[in-house]
Design a protein around this nucleic acid. Sequence first.
DNA 1: TTGTATGCGTTATCAC
DNA 2: GTGATAACGCATACAA
Lengths: 329, 329
Amino acid sequence: MATIRDVAKEAGVSVATVSRVLNETGYVHEDTRKRVTGAMKNLNYSPNEVARSLYKKKSKLIGLLLPDITNPFFPQLARGVEDELQKGGYRILFGNSDENAEKELDYLNTFIQNNVVGIISATNNKSKTNYDGLSIPVVFLDRTSSDYPSVYADGKEGGRIAAGEIVKRGSKRITLLKGPAHIQPALDRFQGALEELSRSDIDFHVMSTTSFAFEDAEKWAKELFSMYPDTDGVLASNDIVATAILHEALRLGKAIPEDIQIIGFDDIPQSSLLFPSLSTIRQPAYEMGKEAVQLLIKLINSEPVHQQHIQMPVTFIERHTTRKVDTNG
Amino acid sequence: MATIRDVAKEAGVSVATVSRVLNETGYVHEDTRKRVTGAMKNLNYSPNEVARSLYKKKSKLIGLLLPDITNPFFPQLARGVEDELQKGGYRILFGNSDENAEKELDYLNTFIQNNVVGIISATNNKSKTNYDGLSIPVVFLDRTSSDYPSVYADGKEGGRIAAGEIVKRGSKRITLLKGPAHIQPALDRFQGALEELSRSDIDFHVMSTTSFAFEDAEKWAKELFSMYPDTDGVLASNDIVATAILHEALRLGKAIPEDIQIIGFDDIPQSSLLFPSLSTIRQPAYEMGKEAVQLLIKLINSEPVHQQHIQMPVTFIERHTTRKVDTNG
DNA sequence: TTGTATGCGTTATCAC
DNA sequence: GTGATAACGCATACAA
């Protein structure tokens, strides 16, 4: 690896001059500028970001902390983050926390140790104390916070919409699935649905799905139909769980959406490829990622920020696990 | 942020001594060691990885380059990589290349500029020249290479198995889907299937699916059934495409697996949640990620490596888009 | 057993 | 316009 010194020697100038042409700071004669850029080309020079980072006490790195990239909701988020970050020349230091406070703290520390200039975190740990005392901006993604800037979907409204739509379409014995209690967005959508359901005259059960893991989804599905066999409407905690419910319902020979209606949450890409395709509440994951980055970059640059808390809209995606509203039963 | 100098002052020793206790190198009296660790605690000191990296010319960072984390096959890989890397205290600098040579080169450059000690790349670009002249170890993941260490599944064998199984189960008019020509693993599985099919007396068509994107999957599915409406067996280029085919077949009122058998490739997590659940050729993605890291770390440490090219086994996962072999038609 | 001094590759502050 | 040089935080060779 060629260093700035090598370039300086090759071009017959001082390192200061090389640095000037590199950063386009200060005056430098056109001729020498050419000699320098020529030397850079010759030596295939590119500046050492580490040295730069050490001196300036700031890098072009940001830390991205996700609960688990294996959950199909997060790749979308991550992609939004990356695409937007790339525009500003930032790079991603990446980690999965598994919603584990210790792992989270560990990653946070190494982010700091590597001079990241900002952090985007989508973890839902109670221990926000992990973030206190950080001298760099943090924005929470898919997570509300009064203390920190955040970008999140309107889960409560999503829950309300889902409940409203399923009731409007004629389900009478609804099962409401409650996601993990420690995950705020899951709680929000649950509470929204609960609120809306309570407002109606419909019977409903609440059942807890204490994880969003693929391996467990099937278990919840079987449990649901063994406990509430006459359910004719399911409000799932997310699309994974909804997929498993759909699978099990079909396996049991139920007609969808005639016997049972199902509404998911998230609108992960594969939901439209199910058969019948899954009606769901869409969160604009990719856009949320981008939004979070835009906010973070403003913060990094100490630009004025109008909104510290950005709530993104959710929408009902009507597909084929719900009946048409005209032909409701 | 406290520096080593602050700690030294607080403990009343020199920075060298602090460095010694930090790295457990050289002798240091127990008493002073305690004073130093105490001071570290007091000041909440943790070493600056950037300075360290600059001095030692090596970091605890590795670069991970994926085609697109949004493709459900890759999160598994990524997770395997991360989990294994974590054990060694390494962190991930992450990027998606979109199989775009320019983006790839861009990421590679910034990896180098940030002093990564190794790179794992799952891109399938022809331009392996991007990697020549790198002074750090690279291992290719999900990609064969004679020039570089690599970890990949036996795609050709997978293709053979898939073809063999669908023939054995009685499909007579098979459509073989060919993935993007520039993606070697897709080509391998195609060629394996082609080979096996050619060996039989079965009629078959070949149709190209030139991308693995969700948005296109539906298009391939419709195209397939409009071009080859009497197909009774589909060998899909991956599980996404298979999912779309299944969806379309069901939509057309075909009975699965009686009218059509479908076999996918990858065994992404959601495949088992489809209905009917998808028969597929499993690649051990998570394990492949781990394997790649183990190889990379040996390379980084200049340890002897028995196998530069690790081929992982693929297996047929029999689910419900294929008929039982006893009751074949 | 401990301290001093040097350098890792850059940028920025001064002189010239 | 350009060039020395100090400094960023750390690890090491060498002295003491």
